[in-house]
Amino acid sequence: MQEKLSLTVLKIGEKATISAVNSEELPAKFLEMGLLPGHVIEVKHKAPFNGPIGLHIHSSNVLIALRKSEAEHIFVEK
């Protein structure tokens, strides 16, 4: 079994499957865009100095940016 990691530890170009989302800490719009358990994501961009993280959600073909504080509430498996 693979370890659950926070989305913030992924590097640019890495793909992972969302294993859990703390929906109480995230706005509903992220869930509506496809940040749901079981969906595959890929890190496209990481801004320096703890800036936003750009993600590609493969199931809905959406590119979104998350604050690091929001990304900490999304857990993935490589």
Results as ranks from 00 to 15, higher is better:
residue 1 M to G: 06
residue 1 M to H: 02
residue 2 Q to V: 07
residue 2 Q to R: 09
residue 3 E to R: 09
residue 3 E to T: 13
residue 4 K to M: 14
residue 5 L to V: 14
residue 5 L to H: 15
residue 6 S to A: 04
residue 7 L to C: 11
residue 8 T to A: 07
residue 9 V to S: 15
residue 9 V to E: 15
residue 10 L to A: 04
residue 10 L to Y: 08
residue 11 K to C: 11
residue 11 K to N: 15
residue 11 K to R: 15
residue 13 G to W: 00
residue 13 G to D: 09
residue 13 G to S: 09
residue 13 G to Y: 03
residue 14 E to A: 05
residue 14 E to N: 07
residue 15 K to M: 05
residue 15 K to N: 09
residue 16 A to W: 01
residue 16 A to C: 01
residue 17 T to V: 14
residue 18 I to P: 03
residue 19 S to N: 08
residue 20 A to I: 01
residue 21 V to C: 11
residue 22 N to C: 02
residue 22 N to F: 07
residue 22 N to L: 02
residue 23 S to F: 05
residue 24 E to G: 10
residue 25 E to A: 13
residue 25 E to I: 01
residue 25 E to V: 05
residue 26 L to A: 05
residue 26 L to P: 05
residue 27 P to K: 10
residue 27 P to T: 04
residue 27 P to I: 01
residue 27 P to G: 02
residue 28 A to V: 13
residue 30 F to A: 03
residue 30 F to E: 03
residue 31 L to Y: 10
residue 31 L to C: 07
residue 31 L to F: 12
residue 34 G to I: 03
residue 34 G to P: 02
residue 35 L to K: 01
residue 35 L to M: 03
residue 36 L to A: 06
residue 36 L to V: 09
residue 36 L to I: 12
residue 38 G to A: 05
residue 39 H to C: 04
residue 39 H to T: 04
residue 40 V to M: 05
residue 42 E to Q: 11
residue 44 K to F: 02
residue 44 K to Y: 05
residue 45 H to T: 08
residue 45 H to A: 06
residue 45 H to I: 06
residue 46 K to C: 04
residue 46 K to Y: 00
residue 46 K to I: 10
residue 47 A to L: 14
residue 47 A to Q: 11
residue 48 P to D: 13
residue 48 P to Y: 13
residue 48 P to M: 12
residue 48 P to C: 12
residue 48 P to N: 10
residue 49 F to R: 12
residue 49 F to G: 09
residue 49 F to C: 09
residue 49 F to P: 01
residue 50 N to T: 13
residue 50 N to Y: 12
residue 51 G to L: 11
residue 52 P to Q: 11
residue 53 I to W: 07
residue 54 G to L: 07
residue 54 G to V: 00
residue 54 G to A: 08
residue 54 G to T: 02
residue 55 L to P: 00
residue 56 H to K: 14
residue 56 H to Q: 05
residue 57 I to S: 09
residue 58 H to D: 11
residue 59 S to C: 07
residue 60 S to H: 11
residue 60 S to L: 08
residue 61 N to K: 12
residue 62 V to T: 15
residue 62 V to L: 11
residue 62 V to H: 13
residue 63 L to N: 15
residue 63 L to K: 13
residue 64 I to W: 03
residue 64 I to P: 01
residue 66 L to V: 02
residue 67 R to D: 13
residue 68 K to C: 08
residue 69 S to T: 11
residue 69 S to I: 09
residue 70 E to Y: 10
residue 70 E to P: 01
residue 70 E to R: 04
residue 74 I to H: 08
residue 74 I to C: 05
residue 75 F to V: 01
residue 75 F to H: 13
residue 75 F to D: 09
residue 76 V to D: 07
residue 76 V to H: 07
residue 76 V to P: 08
residue 77 E to T: 13
residue 77 E to R: 08
residue 78 K to C: 08
residue 78 K to W: 10
